[in-house]
Amino acid sequence: MTTLENAAAVLKLFSQKGIRQGHPGLSFSDVVEQLAMPKSTVSRLLVTMETEGLLERDPDSRLYKIGRLLLAVSSHYLCTPLVDAASPYMAQLSKQTQCTGYVSMLEDRDIMVMRMFPGRTYLQVITPAGSLLPAAETSIGRAMLARYSDQQVIARYREGYRVNSPNSPQTLDALLKCLSEIRETGWSFAHNETLQGISGLATSIANKHRNEMVGLGLSFPSPRDGDALPAGIREGIVSVTRQLAEKLGDEYWQ
């Protein structure tokens, strides 16, 4: 293994052993035993990682903790607004799938489109940034509503539940059943709801460090009855969401 691979293996031990802030840290023997490496190799590796700011060693306990360099980089990333953090991923996914990509936020019972990335399919689906759409009638809205408990969703619709699309959940109970299914799979599907001939697939992602949540969605021409989703759409958006979840520590996707 290269020095970089060995350093990565050491850093992964912090996650594997559940070492969080307030934990004493990793010992020299922990690294030797877990990675099955010679003591001389581990000694040189840990000294280098400490010198470069990847690790810090407590002068009293002699245990290793995550260094200031990694903390500074992760802090900068985690403090980035979630809409901005997700946008490059959705722009690339939109290009790969040729679908129109969206990043949206939940505003009471509506979603607000924050970013839109035009697709290249023969049917252009354009809902510009700033648009408001009923959350219950969109895949991206239901993906975000699924993050809440049934009681919280019921409270959100305490003034009454009403939808315009005949293809959306027609009652609050039907919506709750739909949200339960979304919690099982992690993704939400809408077929000919906001617009006839248009379908959408969506997920949601949260950054607990900023108390933010956004929905990530792809829109595309609706498959004909009996046809499967276009290749790569579901796999692509789930993969992107999992990548973001890993970076942000979103336990919903673990």
Rank of each mutant, 00 (worst) to 15 (best):
S43M: 02
N167D: 11
D225V: 15
I154V: 15
R68W: 03
N207I: 06
D150S: 13
V10K: 03
V83T: 14
S168Y: 01
G53P: 07
K39L: 06
V73D: 15
K95L: 09
K12N: 12
I111H: 09
I205W: 02
Y122E: 15
E56C: 12
G130Y: 05
G67Q: 05
I233D: 00
S239D: 15
G18N: 15
V163D: 10
H209S: 13
M116W: 06
Q92L: 13
L201W: 03
Y148P: 00
Q243N: 10
D58L: 01
A72M: 04
L11V: 11
D84F: 05
A206E: 08
G249K: 05
V238G: 02
T48H: 01
R162V: 10
S74H: 07
A146S: 15
R20I: 14
F189N: 07
E137M: 10
M90S: 06
S168G: 11
P221F: 07
K17L: 15
D84W: 05
V214M: 06
R120Y: 02
A206H: 11
D250M: 09
V113Y: 09
S27A: 14
Q243I: 00
A245T: 03
K39P: 04
S43H: 08
C79N: 13
L106M: 12
V113L: 11
R142T: 03
G53M: 07
A228H: 14
S204V: 06
T121I: 05
A8V: 11
G217H: 01
L63T: 07
D173Y: 01
D250I: 12
R62Y: 09
I154Y: 01
Q98C: 04
L172T: 13
E193P: 14
M90N: 02
L133I: 02
Y148I: 01
S139H: 09
Q243K: 02
A7G: 14
S74I: 06
V83Q: 12
L218M: 12
V83I: 14
A9N: 03
R156A: 07
S104T: 12
V32M: 02
G186D: 08
S104W: 05
S27C: 09
A7Q: 15
R234K: 14
I205G: 01
Q16F: 03
D108K: 13
K208L: 06
V31S: 04
K65F: 02
V214Y: 10
S87E: 10
E56W: 06
Q170V: 11
L63F: 15
T138A: 15
S139P: 08
V32Q: 05
S204N: 07
L123A: 12
K17Q: 11
K65L: 11
L26Y: 12
D227G: 08
I19N: 07
L248E: 04
P221R: 02
S104A: 13
A245G: 14
T97K: 14
L132Y: 08
K17E: 09
P59I: 01
A85M: 11
V113P: 00
F189I: 12
T127R: 11
G18P: 12
D225Q: 13
A146K: 00
K177N: 09
F28W: 06
S188A: 14
Q34L: 09
L4M: 09
F189Q: 08
G215W: 10
V125R: 15
T203D: 07
L218K: 05
Q21H: 13
K17P: 03
K208Q: 10
Y64M: 02
D225N: 11
T121D: 13
T241V: 06
T185A: 10
G130Q: 08
R183N: 07
A143C: 04
S75V: 00
S15D: 13
E159R: 08
G141I: 03
